[in-house]
Write a protein that binds this DNA or RNA. Structure first.
Length: 857
RNA sequence: GCCCAGGUGGCGGAAUUGGUAGACGCGCUAGCUUCAGGUGCUAGUUUCUGUAUGGAAGUGGAGGUUCGAGUCCUCUCCUGGGCACCA
């Protein structure tokens, strides 16, 4: 036989065509078979796939193909998260219509994804910008309005005063608008909201049931929802010439520290702060300064703590002679609690920083157990630990918990406050003042107010004739689109020009895949059969928002009759994969870094690097997430062209555990390529028995290796440790290569066939070709997963380590199920062990049958 | 600032979940095969020490629990992700 080479350029298209012709991955409802729905987070159509996509979809495809081989009726769909800002940016920069740009990108990316050979049901494909999709989203918005899940209220946005437009946090750079360069202001707008906070308790509770979700994601969601038990109470305000403000209501979780209070503070957006602007000199300016900060929590928290004394006082609830100054402070969030707090500097770091800056008292009221109550002082660090209450009158001597209970009891008795459960979670603002999104289907009528668009008039379609020659929302400027007759009174009215947050689009696409062309959001029979998603796979960056919104939306869809009760938690299992990272390279010019593409850089053996074209010295920077800015991107298309999709997939699954970041290296891709070629050559040279021959009795070692590998790889795929599966396949290939000699042709065939079948989920084209070469006519997509023989996969005699004082000193060969006494006797009789004992009896012997022996001298 | 995760050879990582640290791959070293080569094959490769069977140290750092710790506990340093209008 002559040595051949595996040629991916012929083999990959061949099998892609074969699967297509057989419609191998078309999912059809079949109640007689168990279903399995595997879903990867759908991509944003940026124009090209990147390595992160390759990794994500390679993993999903492993699961899909594996489950199919195990007899499940698999649903594995793909679509496009197609609305969003980049399309509008492209429109502004290049004058191309957002829709044209988006659908061109989809066409390009679809072709790239198809070249990966993924087992996707392309017949279910849709884009969220298809009117067919967003029409159903609008229908659900109306249903949710009816169900009381939608509210209209004001909230703050980033406002660019030059462009007169709302900015995303991303578009605010160092407090300035990204285009205008002018300082951004916070501005209040009336917006549409989904009432997710009404479900806060339920969304929190149900996290406990999501056992197949990573614990860290559940924890992040718990913290995000942020349930707290506290006290809401009212201070009397002095001097009381403000008729509208006899009281100031605050919320606290540390009411035990009320006797350590030294000030009260309110948000600059608090109605009282606004009311005082005309009365207190300088306050308007201070508030304006606060509002110049962005809306992101990060920015607010990191900013220097600043306050403005309003001159107002509030009276301590338990002492009419005790007055506290009222400040407006830049670190109080209007959206949390009541937008007002009392400050206890000794036991809250922010309050302490604030008190030191403005010369306010710092009175400790919680004393740690190892400190003396009379002398305990707080320095530059607030004390937030446990202890006994001091300086607190009727609370003195109590624990924090008892103090809270007693204070709350008295406050409730006085009628001045109530215990209250509060959540950090805010309602979901979905209004966007942008064109490329799903129009919110309501009409504003001068006499009827807000009127929903009748369902018969859906979809409210985006107009095509829009211009992006100026900033702001083109829907506002369109000559006719806004004009419409009021559905109730028939008078001239105006359409809502806000569109929906793109998170809405991605909060239910998984349900739509079960019946992508239904005339209602879902088809009950399809949703009932296919839901829930059995395995969801995506990036950890979606751990909070996307997943929380989807959980909310599934509940909302159930309440409005679009999903069955079992689907209020739509994702049974979740896996969050790590990023693809790469070294970055730069040259320097005048102290500035000029980033260089990896393809333009040559690395030498001594670890230095230079530019291919000019030989200029290149500095190797850190390994970071692939990004256009740092140019450290590898285009999957180049890799697929050079090495094939199977190599790209195999390497993405090797080495790094799926949940961790993986570094793309050219050497790693080469290694994957060499492995496939090696297997291919091994088959050239191997003597095999005919298909179906029973394995020989004399080939035990090879057979054991084969069956152990089948058992191990099966467990690895189920446990999402694909890197270990790859390592095991390498080991079997090594064993097979070394297993020479005649008379084991059937055992050798068994090993080769196992390799082809085990590799099929990871590099399907190569595996199919191997399988065909082994003499099989039925493709692997229709071949069941291999079974292992438990007797062959287990060792009866094992090598057991023997430790002396915790250090390994010997090994004994012993039956796996030997009794402790037998093991101990054999261990102690070992020459190396005896040497350490020096003739004396051991002090203690620990025997863990099947594991280890430890002799303590 | 707050929340979450991760630190193991030159590199990516494995370690039966408290039981032989370094599987597998990359890289490197030596040799072979005459290969145009960045191909293939064989052997070696944690560090220190010793001629040697061997010995000692070793999982970011410092303590602790245990017969036994990469794994559990406390403190600490570093890196990454999220922070509500990026998707």
């Amino acid at each position: 036989m002559s040595a051949s080479r595996y040629n991916h350029r012929e083999v990959e298209p061949k099998w892609q065509r074969a699967w297509d012709e057989r419609r191998a991955f078309a999912a059809r409802r079949d109640p007689s078979r168990p279903k399995y729905y595997v879903l990867e987070m759908f991509p944003y159509p940026s124009g090209r796939i990147h390595m992160g996509h390759v990794r994500n979809y390679a993993m999903g495809d492993v699961v899909a193909r594996f489950k199919k081989a195990r007899g499940f009726n698999v649903l594995h769909p793909m679509g496009w998260d197609a609305f969003g800002m980049p399309a509008e940016n492209a429109a502004m920069e290049r004058g191309v219509h957002p829709g044209t740009w988006t659908y061109q990108n989809i066409a390009a990316m679809r072709a790239q994804l198809k070249s990966m050979g993924l087992s996707l049901d392309w017949e279910r494909e849709f884009a969220t910008c298809d009117p067919e999709y967003y029409a159903q989203q609008q229908a659900m918005f109306l249903d949710m309005m009816d169900a009381g899940l939608v509210a209209r209220k004001s909230s703050v946005v980033n406002w660019d005063p030059v462009d007169n437009t709302v900015l995303a946090n991303e578009q605010v750079i160092d407090g300035k608008g990204w285009r205008s360069g002018e300082p951004v202001e916070r501005r209040e707008l009336t917006q549409w909201f989904f009432c997710i906070s009404d479900m806060a308790e339920e969304l929190l509770e149900a996290l406990n049931g999501l056992e197949k979700w990573p614990e860290k994601v559940r924890l992040m969601q718990r913290n995000w929802i942020g349930r707290s038990e506290g006290l809401q109470f009212r201070f009397k305000v002095k001097p009381n010439d403000l008729a509208d403000w006899p009281e100031l209501e605050v919320y606290t979780t540390r009411h035990d520290t009320l006797f350590g209070a030294s000030f009260a503070a309110i948000s600059c957006d608090h109605p009282l702060a606004r009311a005082l602007e005309g009365k207190v000199k300088g306050l308007a300016g201070f508030n304006a300064e606060c509002r110049r900060m962005g809306t992101s929590e990060e920015e607010l928290e990191k900013a220097e703590k600043k306050g403005f004394d309003t001159g107002l006082k509030v009276v301590h609830p338990f002492d009419p002679d005790w007055e506290l100054p009222v400040y407006v402070a830049n670190f109080i969030l209007m959206d949390y609690g009541t937008g007002a707090i009392f400050g206890c500097p000794a036991h809250d770091q922010r309050d302490l920083d604030f008190a030191r800056k403005y010369g306010l008292d710092v009175v400790p009221v919680v004393c740690p157990s190892d400190q003396d109550a009379a002398s305990f002082q707080v320095g530059n660090e607030a004390y937030v630990g446990p202890g006994r209450l001091i300086n607190s009158r009727f609370l003195d001597g109590m624990s924090i918990e008892d103090g809270k209970a007693e204070l709350a009891r008295r406050m409730e008795e006085m009628g001045q406050g109530e215990r209250r459960v509060n959540f950090r979670l805010r309602d979901w603002g979905v209004s966007r003042q942008r064109y490329w999104g799903c129009p919110i289907p309501v009409i504003h009528c001068r006499s009827c107010g807000v009127v929903p668009v009748p369902k018969a008039d859906l979809p409210v379609k985006l107009p095509d004739d829009v211009a992006f020659d100026q900033p702001g929302n083109p829907l506002d400027r369109h000559p006719t689109w806004r004009d419409v007759a009021c559905p109730q009174c028939g008078a001239a009215a105006r359409r809502e020009t806000d569109t929906m947050d793109t998170f809405v689009d991605s909060s239910w696409y998984f349900a739509r895949f079960t019946s992508p062309h239904a005339k209602t959001p879902t088809d009950p029979a399809d949703a009932d059969y296919w839901m829930n998603v059995d395995q969801y796979i995506g990036g950890i960056e979606h751990a909070i928002l996307h997943l929380l919104y989807s959980r909310f939306f599934a509940r909302a869809m159930h309440r409005t009759g679009h999903l069955p009760a079992k689907s209020i938690e739509p994702f049974n299992a979740l896996f969050t994969q790590g990023m693809v990272v790469h070294e970055c390279y730069y040259t320097e010019m005048g102290g500035r870094r000029i980033w260089q593409f990896p393809g333009d850089v040559v690395k030498s053996a001594d670890g230095t690097a230079s530019l291919r074209a000019t030989g200029e010295k290149v500095t190797i920077g850190p390994v970071t997430k692939m990004s256009k800015q740092k140019k450290n991107v590898i285009d999957p298309e180049d890799i697929i062209e050079q090495y094939g999709a199977d190599v790209a997939r195999w390497f993405m699954l090797s080495d790094s555990p799926p949940e961790r970041d993986v570094e793309w290296t050219a050497a790693g891709a080469e290694g994957a390529w060499r492995f496939l070629q090696r297997l291919w050559r091994m088959l050239d040279e191997a003597e095999l028995a005919p298909v179906g021959t029973a394995p020989e009795a004399g080939a035990e070692d090879l057979r054991k290796a084969t069956h152990k590998t089948i058992a191990g790889v099966t467990a690895d795929i189920e446990g999402f440790t694909f890197n270990k599966a790859v390592a095991r396949i390498h080991e079997l290939a090594n064993t097979l290569q070394k297993a020479g000699g005649a008379g084991i042709g059937a055992a050798r065939r068994e090993a080769f066939e196992a390799l082809a079948r085990l590799m099929a989920p990871m590099c399907p084209h190569f595996a199919e070709e191997l399988w065909q070469r082994l003499g099989h006519e039925t493709p692997l997509t229709e071949t069941p997963w291999p079974e292992f023989d438990a007797a062959l996969a287990r060792d009866d005699v094992i090598l057991m380590p023997v430790q002396v004082n915790g250090k390994k000193r010997a090994e004994i060969e012993i039956a796996r199920d030997a009794e402790a006494r037998t093991i101990e006797a054999l261990a102690l009789s070992h020459a190396d062990v005896a040497r350490y004992l020096g003739g004396k009896p051991p002090r203690k012997v620990i025997v863990v049958p099947g594991r280890i022996v430890n002799v303590v001298v």
